[in-house]
Amino acid sequence: MHLIITDAWVAKSRALHLTGVQLVLAGLSLSAVLVLTSLGLYHWVFLEGARQGWPVVGPMVKLLLKSEIESQDAVMRDNLDAMAKRLGQMQARLVQLESLGERVAGLAGVPAADPKLRGAAGGALIAPRAMTAEELSHSLERFDAAALGQMDWLTVTESRLFEQKVRSSRLPTQHPVEGVDTGSGFGWRVDPITGQSALHSGLDFPADTGTPIVAAAGGVVVFAGWHAAYGHMVEVDHGNDLVTRYAHASQLHAKQGDLVRRGQKIANVGNTGRSTGAHLHFEVLVAGVPQDPQKFLDAGRLAAQPQEARAGPSTRVASGPRR
């Protein structure tokens, strides 16, 4: 493209040669300048019109701003309403958690805490209505305090339940020979060897030689060896003057000083010592005084009854001369 520029004062002409690319760039530059100029004028006119209150521009600007503000308010209101509904659901769950915590605490023997101390959030549920940001903030702070209070309260309950579990794990409620009916019970009977009346200080479990014998509760082995009357015998101390005795074993798997857990194999059924047949003689002693082991085993059965769907007693007394 050729452009000829003529100067009338000096009677001179000048020729410019523009290629296609240069022409396009010049057009784009001119367009950009026009757009920026238009935007600047538009912005200035609206700002000045809003400040000065021009008859046409002022109301137009206010209308646009009002529409934008209303749109933002609608979005914010929707968000606040959604948060209010979530808070209502949170409060309902917190009330359920509080009720569950009270029941668990009752099982653990923990007294119900003062609602002010554990941050209770009972009462009417938050309705799905319009709420201000300040109301939502206050509700969130209240729920946070309630959650912290519930956490502290449940921590105390957990500690108490753990203590109870430890205590129960030290009570001889586990059957020492699983799946075996009991023989001679605790109490006075005719001695199968002497034929005279004598106190049977334990509970017999007739079983084949080699049948596993397990600890009825956790504790420390205080004796594991030979006894003239009891044969191969194991004694486990469970603390608080509570000791269990496992006699007439064919083989011992625990030694003195061992720490054993409930259900751990400690020996095998045998016919050693003063015995007339293969069986386990099981005793429970409190401060050295023999107790009826069946009472402890029945307590364990009743405690496990819900999990076993009330399957009924797992032991039956069978006759048979055992010592």
Rank of each mutant, 00 (worst) to 15 (best):
M1T: 10
H2D: 07
D7L: 12
D7G: 00
A15T: 10
L16K: 03
Q22P: 01
L23P: 04
L25M: 00
L25D: 06
L36Q: 04
G40K: 08
L41G: 14
Y42C: 08
V45N: 13
E48K: 13
G49D: 10
A50K: 09
P55H: 01
M60L: 15
K62F: 11
S67Y: 08
E68Q: 04
I69F: 14
D78V: 00
D78F: 07
D78G: 15
L80N: 08
A84P: 02
R86D: 15
L87W: 11
G88R: 04
M90A: 15
Q91P: 08
A92C: 06
V95M: 10
V95F: 02
L100V: 13
G101T: 11
R103E: 12
L107T: 03
L107P: 10
P111H: 04
K116R: 12
A120E: 11
I126G: 01
E134T: 07
L140R: 12
R142H: 08
D144N: 14
A145P: 07
L148F: 06
G149W: 03
W153V: 03
L154K: 05
R160Q: 15
V166M: 11
V166E: 15
R167I: 09
S168W: 03
H175Y: 13
H175S: 09
H175W: 14
W188Y: 08
V190H: 11
P192E: 11
Q196E: 11
G202R: 07
P212V: 04
I213C: 13
I213Q: 05
V220A: 14
V222D: 09
F223V: 06
G225P: 01
A228I: 03
G231C: 01
G239E: 07
T244E: 05
R245A: 02
H248R: 00
S250V: 04
L252W: 14
A254C: 09
Q256P: 08
V269E: 01
N271H: 02
T272N: 06
R274I: 03
T276D: 09
F282Y: 07
E283R: 00
A287H: 05
P290C: 00
G300E: 00
R301P: 09
L302R: 10
A309F: 09
S314P: 02
R316P: 06
V317K: 14
A318G: 15
